[in-house]
């Protein structure tokens, strides 16, 4: 671990001016600093900032402070009642101990679990641009089938972000240039030739909160995560669905997939394949095929394509079945 300067931010503005790496729950940052994967010169602790509130927005919807802990958000009454997909996604992630520390803002920026990213003895373009990718010819069972490039196939690990994708969340930031509101769908970058750039945040820009739009009455949502063991493991494939059905007809649906993409994977293709159509397993299957049409399997992860389709079909079935 490299020696670093530690300071505490007293205000959002102060944090933004501080030019250090922000420390929230620390469940990713500290872990990776111990492995020498991240070696910040300065760490700015943002835990003192007043960003730990969950508040209803006047026109409907929810405002979630960047420092709201995963466990608090998952168990928040409004989230449980109105945004079930988010509560379920949060509770499927990590362990209770980690969820008690991990924050909303931090989780959006969670780093990949790629074996090769986490070991400085390996070439990794994400960790050290231009050094190569050890996963493409390596043991890539857990890697992405969507959004990969010749330079990086690392999977985005977050469950929460997948649910937020389907909820059409907006990320709010404060930077040197002022405040920004970024649709989550526009927040993440695919690796391309610059896998070290994972999102559109500018240096020093701080996530202050996330907003969720209000959901129309009758909207249902669900998160399903498939993995080797029942708890404490990242997804092999997961699906988040937010859907409103009228009779048999799907009026509106938002779909995101986890465990299969280099970023939390919103599938407009699957949404288009369903909106205005009947909620039938046949249509679900067609939507799942559309979602995975561009998937590119590596040597060991081809099974994820079928697994993700099944996760999506089941999640659609669960959210559209009539009681």
């Amino acid at each position: 671990m490299q020696t670093f300067r530690y300071s505490q931010a007293r205000s959002v503005e102060g944090a933004v001016r501080s030019s250090g790496t922000f420390l929230a729950g620390g469940t990713t940052l500290v872990d990776l600093m111990k492995l020498d994967v991240l070696q910040p010169n300065a760490v700015v602790d943002i835990n003192p900032l007043p960003l730990a509130q969950v508040e209803a927005l006047p026109g409907g919807g929810l405002r979630i402070g960047a420092m709201v802990r995963n466990s608090d958000l998952a168990n928040h009454a409004t989230v449980r009642e109105q945004y079930a997909v988010l509560s379920e996604a949060l509770l499927s992630g990590a362990s209770p101990q980690l969820r008690n520390m991990a924050t909303t803002g931090g989780n959006l920026l969670q780093k990949t679990r790629c074996y090769y990213y986490r070991d400085t003895n390996y070439a990794c373009n994400k960790r050290q641009p231009g050094s190569g990718c050890s996963a493409i010819d390596g043991y890539n069972r857990i890697h992405a089938v969507l959004g990969g490039s010749a330079d990086c196939v690392a999977t985005h690990p977050s469950d929460m972000a997948v649910a937020m994708m389907a909820l059409e969340a907006t990320v709010h930031t404060q930077g040197a240039q002022g405040q920004r509101a970024i649709a989550l769908d526009q927040f993440y970058l695919v690796p391309g030739m610059t896998p070290d750039k994972e999102n559109v945040l500018l240096p020093g820009e701080l996530i202050t909160h996330v907003t969720l739009p209000a959901l129309a009455a009758g909207t249902r949502s669900h998160y399903l995560k498939l993995r080797d063991r029942a708890q404490y493991e990242f997804a092999l494939a997961s699906a988040a669905v937010v859907v409103r059905v009228s009779g048999r007809r799907i009026e509106r649906v938002r779909i995101a997939l986890g465990g299969v993409g280099t970023k939390p994977w919103r599938s407009a293709e699957a949404e288009r394949a369903l909106e205005g159509r009947d909620a039938t397993t046949e249509n679900f299957r067609r939507a799942a095929d559309a979602a995975m049409a561009d998937a590119k399997p590596l040597r060991y992860n081809g099974f994820k394509i079928e697994l993700a389709k099944r996760a999506l079909v089941r999640t659609l079935e669960t959210t559209t079945q009539t009681a």
């Binding site: 679990r113 074996y115 063991r229 029942a230 404490y232 493991e233």
Partner: peptide, 18 residues
């Protein structure tokens, strides 16, 4: 010859839920 999953997150043992 590195064991790639040389930690408790990646080497899977049964949790109570399993």
């Amino acid at each position: 010859a590195k064991p790639l999953n040389n930690n408790f997150a990646d080497y899977l043992v049964a949790t109570n839920a399993d």
